[in-house]
Design a protein around this nucleic acid. Sequence first.
RNA 1: GCGGAAGUAGCUCACCUGGUAGAGCGACAGCUUCCCAAGCUGUAGGUAGCGGGUUCGAGUCCCGUCUUCCGCUCCA
Length: 488
Amino acid sequence: MSTQSDNRFQAIISHAKEYGFVFQSSEIYDGLSAVYDYGPYGSELKKNIRDYWWKSMTQMHENIVGVDAAIFMHPTTWKASGHVDNFSDPMIDNKDSKKRYRVDHLIEGFAETLTEKGETQKAETILKEMDVLLAKEDYAGLKELIVSNNMKCSVSGTCNWTDIRQFNLMFDTKLGSVTDEADTIYLRPETAQGIFVNFLNVQKTARMKIPFGIAQTGKAFRNEIVARQFIFRMREFEQMEMQFFVRPGTEGEWYKYWKEARLQWHLSLGIDAAKYRYHDHVKLAHYAKEACDIEFDFPMGFKEVEGIHSRSDFDLSQHQQYSKKKMQYFDADVDSATGKPYGNYVPYVVETSIGLDRMFLLILSNAYDEETLTKEDGSTDSRVVMHIPAKIAPIKLAILPLTKKDGLPELARELMNECKPHFRCFYEEKDAIGKRYRRMDAIGTPFCVTIDHQSKEDGTVTIRYRDTMQQERVPMSKVKEIVLQQIF
RNA sequence: GCGGAAGUAGCUCACCUGGUAGAGCGACAGCUUCCCAAGCUGUAGGUAGCGGGUUCGAGUCCCGUCUUCCGCUCCA
């Protein structure tokens, strides 16, 4: 990373705090690692992003409905989803190189080199033994397997290993007052399962026909080993996801559809397409048929902001198996190939999953700008401006009487009362007008209206646009409409 | 988790080899009424991240700890 982008990231983090977007959690107690709070403007922006997503998914798609599932779920949910097994990876460290490995990766890597050397038989034996030991969670046995086969660290070349430790990425807690093993429940590590377990409830009550989607936003929790880069990777975060249920065999075309549709959503916010790219997964998770990330050019480089996954019928089938409840849909549409209805099947799923906090960081990163301005007399000036899309800006309109006497505040208050039921407004009469403009630039307010002496005479005001700094004179009675037009 | 760097006012930072904590910007109250911040007056705000040690004396030296950024690692 260059020093320049490094500084830019630092500047954005400072700005986020100074102007009430993001604070570190429990800061007065030295903070809590990788946990953050959203401040007055941050909570507003975050809510606006969420609402914009929600509207685009549900209101704009007649075949997508929402749910709001609980964070706590039955423990078996996470067995079915595979999180209990796959989200707790045993790890081992090399004491010399300080390098950490996932135990299964280390052993698989070793087996691979054996295979390359032609010792296929031995490699298979080791892998089999590993599977048995992993299933038993026999960490001493696994370490013995590593040591006895003289598996070396690729960096230090030594065999000086620590004991194997378990890192469970799911937070657990106790349900009920009695502390008992059986009462251990998890804070959901993803929101998707709340959709899958409600699949039939939703389908039946909302009378949905395939293809249809279920959307949800909400908190999820992961006990990351390393969580860093400001709000990019947090232990408590919010997801916005939509699971789209389709007839098996059509998942390919829907995957393609959503991959394109989701990028269009990002571009609809007016963000430069050159800052986005797709990253198609080559190595797929066991359940996935196709998967890609939408990546954004953050100050620290291109990083994932959203994922689109073709998940097959993995999730619903798993829940069907573990719950012993049918997760089927009866498709009455006639298959032209057979002339008969498609009948009962477990639907396939195409998922779109976006991190709300990451989207927030994306907006901040994209919006933050330190501009150098040349004044009329040739001298230079600077301003920090947040080019937040007007649709999601925390404050839409600032109403600023040029002076605080001569009846201007009264006039400004009239406009304030007219506009504030419709969108978030901000009233300010303190300090010079230029200073007030700069303050609004810093929190990304797209429109400022100034009430001056002429306003009293002819009922016109000046509206000033954040990005261009241009002003135009308009009737005060039109202000509400002008703003409404640009925020929808 | 390992390694590197850092933590002093809301922000950016200063305080040189240990000697009772400062500036600029910002905020607040008032003056000014000025259409693109940094005019005037006044005010508030820090037990120098936290804990311990050395010392007559620690922001400064040592140890621990927490937090942040960077690299490695991790990211079903």
